[in-house]
Amino acid sequence: MPSWRSTRLPSSPLPRHWQRGFTLLETVLAFAVLGMVLSGLYTVSARSAGRLADARNTYLASEFARSMLDQYILATPPPSSSGTYRQTWDWEITEQRLGGLQPSSLDKHFAFYEVSVVVTRHGLSDTRPAVLSRTVARKAGRQ
Score class of each variant (00 low, 15 high):
residue 102 Q to G: 00
residue 95 E to M: 10
residue 15 P to D: 09
residue 98 L to A: 05
residue 83 G to N: 02
residue 59 Y to S: 14
residue 111 A to W: 01
residue 25 L to I: 15
residue 126 D to K: 06
residue 113 Y to T: 07
residue 114 E to W: 02
residue 35 G to K: 12
residue 76 T to P: 01
residue 67 S to L: 07
residue 136 V to E: 01
residue 87 Q to V: 04
residue 37 V to A: 11
residue 119 V to K: 04
residue 61 A to H: 02
residue 66 R to L: 15
residue 8 R to E: 04
residue 24 L to T: 08
residue 91 W to Q: 05
residue 68 M to A: 08
residue 16 R to W: 03
residue 36 M to K: 02
residue 82 S to L: 01
residue 57 N to S: 14
residue 78 P to F: 07
residue 125 S to R: 15
residue 87 Q to A: 14
residue 12 S to I: 07
residue 21 G to R: 08
residue 99 G to W: 00
residue 28 V to T: 10
residue 89 W to R: 11
residue 123 G to N: 08
residue 25 L to D: 02
residue 60 L to R: 11
residue 68 M to T: 14
residue 47 R to V: 12
residue 51 R to L: 15
residue 55 A to R: 02
residue 34 L to G: 14
residue 108 K to I: 05
residue 30 A to N: 04
residue 118 V to Y: 00
residue 69 L to W: 11
residue 142 R to K: 11
residue 132 L to K: 08
residue 143 Q to L: 12
residue 78 P to A: 15
residue 11 S to D: 15
residue 135 T to D: 12
residue 20 R to C: 06
residue 96 Q to V: 15
residue 88 T to C: 01
residue 69 L to F: 10
residue 137 A to F: 00
residue 44 V to F: 12
residue 92 E to C: 00
residue 97 R to G: 11
residue 61 A to V: 01
residue 45 S to L: 10
residue 8 R to I: 01
residue 139 K to S: 13
residue 33 V to R: 00
residue 28 V to G: 02
residue 135 T to K: 07
residue 22 F to Y: 14
residue 49 A to F: 12
residue 139 K to C: 02
residue 108 K to P: 00
residue 131 V to A: 02
residue 62 S to E: 08
residue 52 L to R: 08
residue 70 D to I: 00
residue 18 W to H: 14
residue 110 F to D: 10
residue 124 L to N: 14
residue 89 W to A: 06
residue 122 H to E: 11
residue 135 T to S: 11
residue 135 T to R: 10
residue 115 V to S: 02
residue 56 R to V: 07
residue 58 T to S: 14
residue 30 A to T: 08
residue 4 W to V: 10
residue 79 P to G: 09
residue 60 L to C: 00
residue 31 F to W: 12
residue 108 K to C: 01
residue 40 G to M: 07
residue 64 F to P: 02
residue 97 R to A: 14
residue 58 T to G: 03
residue 142 R to W: 09
residue 4 W to I: 12
residue 14 L to W: 10
residue 118 V to G: 02
residue 128 R to F: 05
residue 70 D to N: 12
residue 142 R to E: 10
residue 39 S to C: 10
residue 70 D to W: 06
residue 11 S to V: 09
residue 62 S to T: 10
residue 106 L to K: 07
residue 127 T to H: 10
residue 74 L to R: 13
